[in-house]
Structure formats: C-alpha cells, structure tokens
Design a protein around this nucleic acid. Sequence first.
DNA 1: TCCCTTATAGTCAAACGGATTATAATTGGA
DNA 2: TCCAATTATAATCCGTTTGACTATAAGGGA
Lengths: 322, 322
Amino acid sequence: MDDQETGASKDRAAVTGDEVKVDLIAFVVAVNDGEPCVLTIGQADTLPSGPFALEHRSLQSGLRGWVEQQTGHPLGYIEQLYTFADRDRVGAERRQRAISISYLALTRMEKASGSPKCGWRSWYEYFPWEDHRSGTPPMLLDVLRPRLIEWANSVGDAAMRRERRQRAAMAFGFDDRHWNEELTLQRYELVYEAGLVQEAGSGRDTTRASLVPSKPMVADHRRIVATGIARLRSKIKYRPVVFELMPQSFTLLQLQRTVEALAGRLINKPNFRRLIEQQELVEETGETSVDTGGRPARLYRFRHAVLDETAIVGTKLPIARG
Amino acid sequence: MDDQETGASKDRAAVTGDEVKVDLIAFVVAVNDGEPCVLTIGQADTLPSGPFALEHRSLQSGLRGWVEQQTGHPLGYIEQLYTFADRDRVGAERRQRAISISYLALTRMEKASGSPKCGWRSWYEYFPWEDHRSGTPPMLLDVLRPRLIEWANSVGDAAMRRERRQRAAMAFGFDDRHWNEELTLQRYELVYEAGLVQEAGSGRDTTRASLVPSKPMVADHRRIVATGIARLRSKIKYRPVVFELMPQSFTLLQLQRTVEALAGRLINKPNFRRLIEQQELVEETGETSVDTGGRPARLYRFRHAVLDETAIVGTKLPIARG
DNA sequence: TCCCTTATAGTCAAACGGATTATAATTGGA
DNA sequence: TCCAATTATAATCCGTTTGACTATAAGGGA
C-alpha cells in the first residue's frame, strides 16, 4: 500500500539517474468488409511502436512518425489509451525503467498503402471469445469455461474459489448472466491470470499444456489491444467515432455492420436506423448503392457539423432544471 | 501532421540518450460539508507530485509514496488521468524531455491527518465558473462572456471569429444553450487560449490586464485539475465511485449533496432517491441521524457487493437479443 | 412471372425519466 | 401546548425512449 522512500529522493532537485525510456505504442483500427482489424508488423504479433525521442514535437506526433515509418500508414483520429510501466529492464550499465504510452487510432484501410512488412489482422484472431455476432462462440463454453473453472478450483481457499468463479461468470456471462461486450479487458486479464494465453508464460500456477487457442502477441501488446477494444466499444455509444472508420458515403446497413464488427454483437436493424436518424448524425447524398443484392439503398454521409454540437451527452443524473 | 525522423533513430536498439524524466502528479479529491476539495501543497497552488524513481514498485505505488510523504495522506481509490509531455526542459548538460503522468485519487478528509504544509481547497476557488449549484454564477455572464466575445472578435478572419464564438457558446452554454457540467476541460482550455488565466502567461494575444478572477496554480496543475473534474463528473454517472468520498454511514441527502458538489449542479431529490434505490447501491444500517434539523433521516451504507455486480452498464445500442 | 433479397416505414407496449404533490416525523419558538 | 418551519419519505402523473415486431417497397435473377 505504501512505499519506503529513500532520504535522498526527498529533494527532487537532487534526484539524478532516474531517467526512463519512453515507448509509444499504437493500436490502429480499421474495419474492412465487416471485419474489425488491427495494424501489425512482424509476424502479425507486434504493434507499431518506437521510442519517444528529442526530435518529436509531441507525444502524438512521435507516434504518427513511428507508425507511418513502420507501416506507411498515415493516422487520422488518435486517442491516448493508457500509460504503464514495464518491469525493470537491464540496461547497458545500470538498471533502467521503461514506460509505454499506448494510443488508439482509427483509420480507413486504403488499398496499396502500407509497406510489405505490415498487415491487417482481424481482432478476433487474438480474441476468439469476443466475437458474438454469430451467437456465443462454441469455444467459450467448450474450452474457456471448463479451463476457468479448473483454474478457480485450483486454489485452496474456499472463499477465493468462489470469488474466482464469480469473476469469471461476471466477465464472460456464464450462468445465465448477460454478455457485456465492454468487459474485454477484464476477460483478457482473467485468461491471463489463469495462464490460458501464451504470454502469461512462466511463473504461473498452470502449465503450458492448457493454452486456449488464440493468436498471441509480443510482450504486452495483446493487453493493449484488449484495452483499446474495450475503450472503443464503450466510446461508440456516446461519441460518433464510427465515422472515422467509414468511407465518404455509405449505406445504413454498412454503417450497422461496422458497429456490429466493433461491438462483436448483432444489432436490431429498425432500431439502429431510428437511433441514427433521430440523432441526425448523417444526411443523404442523394445517390443510391446498387450492389446490395436487393433493393438499392440510399447513400449517406456523415454530418460533420455534429462534431461542434457537443450537446450529445447523456445525463443519467436527475438534474433539476434551472 | 507527420514528423521527419532522423535516420539514426530508425533502429530502435541504436537509439541512445533519449531518456526522459517522468513525474507523477496527483489530483486528490475529498468532499467536506458539501464542498468538493483538492489536496494542495505550497501556497495552495501545487499538486502533490514527484519523480518516478527506481525504488518504486509501480507507477501507482510511486504516486502513493509521494503523496503520503508530502501531505501525510494515504490514498485509496486511484485512477490514471492522462500522460502529457512538457515543453523541453534544459537539463544540466543537455536538453531534456519530461513527461507527467497524472492521477485522480478519491479519499475522505480525515481531521488531524496531514502535515502542516498541505491543505484542502475548494475546487471552485480555481474554477469559479464551474459551480452552478446556486444558479449560473454572475461572473460567467458579467465577466467571462464579454471577455470571450472580445477574444473571439480579436481575430481577423470572419470564419474563425464565428468558430470561436461557437466554441465558447457550446462550452459555457451561452445563447440559451444548456450548461453541460462535463465540459470542464474544454472550458478551461478556452479561458486559457483567451489568455484569461494567469498561467496562459506571455506570448499570448492578450494582455495581463484582462485576467478573470480565479486562483491560479503552478505550471499546468490547473489543467490537470480540470481534466480530473471532467473525468469525475462523467464517471459518477455510470460507476458508484461517490462512495469513496462518503463516510461509513450517511443519509441520502448527504449523498445527494456530495454528488451535487461534484457535479456543480442541483439534483431533483425524489428522483435521486429513486435512482439510488432501484440500483440497490445502498442498504439501511437501521439507525437514524438526528442532526438533520427536521425529521430524522435513515442512515445507509454502501453495498460493497455491487462492485462485483459489474452488470451496471448502459447499452445505448439497440443490441438484438440472443 | 415468381421468388429471393434487401431497404424502408410504421406500430405497440413496456420501461424509463422528469416533475409534482402528498404525507410523516422531528425541532424550536410563540 | 400548539403552531410553524424543516426535513424525510412515499406515491403519482405523463411524455419520451426503447425493445420487439410487422408491413410494404424496390431491385435482381431463375
């Protein structure tokens, strides 16, 4: 709960040698053909990143630089996710701290852009239990649930067993509880704690044999992705950020499919249309799209004016009128 | 928008000398007697802070250490706010970057704790335009509005004038728009841009003479407080964090007054009670409080079980049922 | 032409949210 | 002792929102 401070560190001016390396890491998102994708480099297991350096004007511009250099992809919308400290790294001459500042970026997937050593992968390769668009994924009940119960029961204390089962049931919606798509990070932390993903690695109370099938990432990059998914799934509900992922003009069904891709759930069509229309988020272009397979759909564009109309907020508190 | 990277920085392993100083800064909140307070040191113009150092186990424990050492106050609930890079600092031998990681902490104001050099101050000394519990503060319309209009008109381009007036109207609810208490940060940024607060200082397009009456803080600490207020005002609407600020047992009116202190607005009493009850956030202690001045009020305590029932979330998307 | 697919419009009831009114239990003072 | 003021607590009303569902329109292809 509290720390012992050295006497020397009391005087801030006297502190030296407490410099730290700072890394900027980007979770870049695009949606293509109804699949939500993350921009990766290497063996599709690494997020674009690089150190914050003197020549960078700001944290965000440093991030843009690294992503563009490593992937050839310019970034539009950027939002800070979280800052965390790695475990100590051993530097050349002395112990060295490193912290990572992670960002969420929304973009469109342009073809022919991007260098060859980068690529787009579906989120759900890394989080197969997060995609509920075709109902509950079988692996959730067949594989994850028994493994998590096993993990819960592997601890001696009865109260702790109950608490673990409870946490798992809450996060994954077991036992007739409802699935909550925003709990992506809690779910990842559970499977990590239970040692069911590769990066949970050594020093855990489970063996490597019982991994759950999912694509791993380098270091804690998968955790960053989980944080980003959770943030995005929450944010689309109160801010019109989806449109950062849409082309200039689109049909309402395309918009719905994009939201569904992000949320990992299906959405009621008439109600979705009503929601969009009554918020006046879009306006008709006047044209129609014919490649729908059925009746042609009207094309819409985002009403950029709504970005100024910040008024779009939900109260949730019974505030008295003036 | 994008940066030119030096050739040398391309290879991450080859990068050296890009170490950075990291500061941890805390916005510590307590509510006393219906006043929302911030914990300060120095001339009530500085937030507790200190460098992240090797002996700290983690960012959070480093923060706890500094706050406890500087103020004698142990921290409970902690949440990361934002990480930002200061302007370059000139170090002893070379240019030096510094970044600040800011946190929001919720606590109870215990008497007799805390060293003499620290103190609690009401938020609204630093943000007099944010307290709407007794209606719109006069200075908002008498002082701020004319100054902001003046600032908007001081720019040549007509479109930019309109955009500035529009931004101010949105943020402050001018011209019959509604006051939105969550826009604290946008409002602070406006008065900063307009040069109406002391820390906006030199190099601005306005003179020192036209400051708006409000208590300043050191460096960008007031900006951190604004960020924290905005975050907290938003968060109390969907997570039961208020109870971190309440004593063990309390009346419903005390709870309401605390929320009102944070939101800076009055709340409809019956509806507030209904909200609390239907969410089952509290349970009766069985006792009553007599010092209400009228009919004695029942005492309640927070139902800690709700922290496990993460189910408390608002959907806002018309998700189809399974 | 028939059928399949998708788009678009409209309906209905339950739940929610904002506002108001009514009644109960104290304290303090005339 | 009784009344007024103050605060607590309960109950009601009604318009809006929200979830689920039904109906009709407009294309393509067999």
